[in-house]
């Protein structure tokens, strides 16, 4: 069976959940092989093996950390070519898309972004995408070259195989002049919140203008549910919550099991970022708010009383 390359998304060897999802999807299409770029592979080995990476390509080079994206694209292109892989899967993050874009041009291959599912039809990889702010579902396939596909977080539940990495191949890459044109001169890690990563979380509680600037009830409900916190652009633009937590067209796209929209009206740009959530719950004091049209469950009421009551009830039920 041909190899399906999975680019590992990691921070110093801590593998992100999206990578485990990609490995799970890759198994449908071929033999998953992980591509690990940068330092920290020892910390990642067991996890990658456990989720089905029979083989891992490892590239360690200072350029991968010093320069933006291009060294990663060059390394991945080299491995895709030498391994004769049948496809390359990456996470639909800004970085994943940039790498995919350059990789597709280098390989002369078609690219599909933001897949929410992957199936195999007559031994071809077929993707499912949700387009036009979730209004349409489209299935597509790459018809030339090695399919380069970026997949949204939460496309699938990661399934462990209980395997281990059988083969490790260290790859040396000679980077081109083009690889060193954009230098990373400073890097400030984002402060940890103790909550799950927004794009990976299975529950997201979001607040909008209706919070009036007080996110405490939103955060308390999120913590009771073990959820991530999100925000509408109106809340972000008002300076109530950092931009990194904005959900929508120009923020993060989330696709959790459960999305709670609190004091959010449901503008199309917001819906674009959460429409593929499995279950949607709304708290809004205006019964005419468009967001109710997509709610599985809604409460017409003031979030400042409804959320604390829900939080207390959840804590009571959890004992």
């Amino acid at each position: 069976m041909a190899e399906i390359l999975v680019l590992v998304d990691h921070v110093d060897g801590a593998v992100r959940k999206t990578t485990l999802e990609l490995l799970t999807l890759a198994r449908r299409a071929g033999e998953p092989a992980a591509v690990f770029l940068g330092t920290g592979f020892d910390a990642a080995r067991d996890t990658l093996g456990e989720y089905g990476a029979a083989k891992v390509y490892v590239v360690e080079a200072p350029e991968l950390e010093q320069y933006l994206v291009v060294p990663k694209a060059e390394a991945l292109a080299q491995i895709a070519q030498s391994s004769g892989a049948a496809g390359v899967l990456l996470t639909s993050s800004p970085e994943g898309k940039e790498i995919a874009a350059r990789l597709a041009v280098k390989l002369g291959s078609g690219v599909i972004t933001d897949a929410i599912d992957i199936t195999v039809v007559a031994s071809e990889i077929v993707t499912t995408q949700s387009v036009f702010a979730g209004g349409y579902t489209v299935t597509a396939q790459v018809t030339r070259g090695t399919p380069v596909i970026t997949v949204k977080p939460n496309a699938v539940t990661p399934e462990a195989t209980g395997g281990s990495v059988g083969a490790e191949e260290k790859v040396a890459v000679a980077f081109s002049d083009a690889a060193t044109k954009a230098r990373i001169v400073d890097r400030k890690p984002r402060a940890a919140t103790g909550r799950p990563e927004l794009t990976e979380a299975s529950i997201v509680v979001s607040g909008g203008r209706g919070t009036g600037g007080d996110f405490a009830p939103v955060e308390a409900l999120a913590d009771a549910l073990g959820a991530a916190v999100g925000a509408s652009r109106a809340a972000v633009d008002s300076g109530w919550y950092p931009h990194a937590y904005q959900v929508g067209q120009t923020g993060k796209t989330v696709s959790p099991q459960l999305y709670l929209a609190c004091g959010i009206s449901g503008a199309i740009q917001h819906r674009a970022g959460m429409q593929t959530s499995k279950t949607i719950v709304v708290v809004n004091k205006d019964p005419e708010a468009p967001i109710f049209a997509m709610a599985d469950f809604g409460v017409v009421g003031d979030l400042h009383t409804v959320l604390p009551q829900a939080t207390a009830e959840i804590q009571k039920r959890k004992g």
Partner: peptide, 25 residues
Amino acid sequence: FSVVREVTKRPERTAGTVVTDEGDG
């Protein structure tokens, strides 16, 4: 280099339950 196989309009989400807060929302 890629082709769309099928386009389906996403079914409208079936209307869920909406309750009005009367102190127990």
